[in-house]
Amino acid sequence: MAHSLAEECTPMKREYDACFNAWFEGYLEPAVAATPETRRQYSTAKAAEYERNCGKIWAQYKECVQKAVKNKGLDVLLDQARAENPLKEPPSIPSPDKAS
């Protein structure tokens, strides 16, 4: 796994990444297979499971990395980028089948 931008955050980053990946690998295929009827229940249960499994290490890692972002002066650039393009919704990209 890659390093964090701050060496002191790297152990927390690795623990968090491993937690997310383990959760995600169990999450994805049933999520794809879910029907419109079962999706909401599955998503709610899995979102809660993610929070339970990874919430604690995420909070620690996030605090560490936010501090590092600030110390390196990247918070200003990030705030500008977020203001310019919040990306709260997925961008619309022409799909290959529709584009042709």
Binding site: A2, H3, S4, L5, C9, K13, Y16, D17, F20, F24, A31, A34, R39, R40, Y42, S43, T44, K46, A47, A48, Y50, W58, Y61, K62, V65, Q66, A68, V69, L74, L78, L87, K88
Partner: peptide, 23 residues
Amino acid sequence: VVTIDTLDRTVDPRTGVIRTERL
């Protein structure tokens, strides 16, 4: 590519969509 950090991540409990912001 030397460093990667997750800055924000949400799992939508209704739609199951995962949004991730990384640096």
